[in-house]
Write a protein that binds this DNA or RNA. Structure first.
Length: 317
DNA sequence: AAGACGAAAGTGGTTGA
DNA sequence: TCAACAACTTTCGTCTT
């Protein structure tokens, strides 16, 4: 019987005799205490590979698992294509070639319209996510939303691109990595009100809860676009927290709140940014920043900002 | 001259009758 | 379906630095 003892990283102790000498018996799938013989785990699955590789060629020959499946691929990443390219087919004996050429042709023909559509849609999605610097997790989530939309025939009557864009917008919000409608509208080349409309439609039809976005989710990204320091980010989040407690953020556009909070924080830390600069990256106007700014400073006391009257006196003099 | 401020009018979307 | 409404934008004149 082959007993394999894995000592590395396993700091588990036997609850019965407190011994550290545990043993994995892979032929039985059990974790056993060497001292008292207690079985601590049963039906373990051995995830290690049972073959060894001596060079990279070996690895390729013996490996049986492929890439992980992905919803962001039209075939989920699992596909068999007859005669990839053409070279494979010409490796066959001449007699067999026509047969495989025919099979190849038919494989292309039977791929249904929805499959082709999905392929195209997911290619679009890929383009959006890479242009917006979104992580693969968000792309996956968006792909799932899109698949659900297709399954429910929600694409009918609206452009495929707008549904893809709306799926992405949904996924972004669920992931706490929101992009503004403007940003998505930009890469997708679709008016933002259409994306918004489709988004609401999808959310309702698919029963996706739509929580308003948290301004905090925007802050780090805006800050980095403005070259603001981590101190300013921390400060912004503090201010935002207080603002939330004072109910100054509800009902307001989250980007506007984020922008105003950043603007104030930047002033406090001496990394001055103009309203224009902040407004530009946040996709709001200076007026909105001013309005939020006014509301915030009215209810919150910023010592540093209140010193202004002194300066005014000095200039009058 | 550039930035900040504020008033006024306009826009797109939501809500409630 | 329509009107009321809040948030936001656009535009513009004025003030401050």
């Amino acid at each position: 019987m082959a007993l394999v003892v894995h000592s590395s990283g396993d700091t588990k102790k036997c609850p019965k005799c407190n011994s550290e000498s545990l043993m994995k018996d892979f032929t039985r799938g059990e974790l056993v205490c060497k001292k008292c013989g207690a079985v601590l785990e049963e039906n373990m699955i051995d995830f290690s590979q049972e073959w060894r590789e001596f060079d990279s060629g070996d690895a390729n020959k013996r490996r049986r698992a492929g890439a992980p499946i992905s919803l962001a691929r039209h075939d989920k990443g699992i596909s068999t294509e007859i005669g990839m390219g053409f070279s494979d087919i010409f490796k066959l004996p001449p007699k067999l070639r026509p047969k495989f050429l025919r099979l190849k042709k038919w494989q292309q023909r039977i791929s249904t319209a929805t499959e082709r559509n999905l392929k195209y849609a997911l290619a679009e999605l890929k383009r959006y996510t890479s242009q917006l610097n979104l992580p693969p997790g968000v792309e996956e989530a968006a792909a799932l939303v899109y698949r659900r939309a297709v399954a429910k025939e929600l694409v009918r009557g609206r452009s495929m691109e707008s549904v893809v864009a709306a799926s992405l917008y949904t996924a972004c919000r669920e992931h706490g990595t929101p992009r503004t409608l403007d940003e998505i509208a930009d890469v997708a080349n679709i008016p933002k009100r259409e994306i918004g409309r489709t988004f609401r439609f999808l959310a309702r039809q698919l029963g996706i809860r739509i929580l308003p976005t948290d301004p905090a989710d925007y802050i780090p990204r805006f800050a980095s676009q403005l070259n603001l320091s981590g101190i300013t980010v921390t400060k912004s989040l503090e201010i935002l927290k207080k603002a939330k407690e004072l109910e100054l953020s509800s009902g307001r556009g989250p980007t506007g709140v984020a922008a105003a909070v950043l603007y104030i924080a930047a002033q406090l830390t001496g990394e001055k940014k103009t309203q224009r600069e902040v407004a530009d990256v946040a996709g709001v106007t200076e007026v909105t920043i001013r309005n939020r700014y006014k509301e915030l400073t009215k209810q919150m006391r910023f010592k540093e900002l209140e010193e202004k009257p002194v300066i005014i006196e000095a200039t009058i003099k």
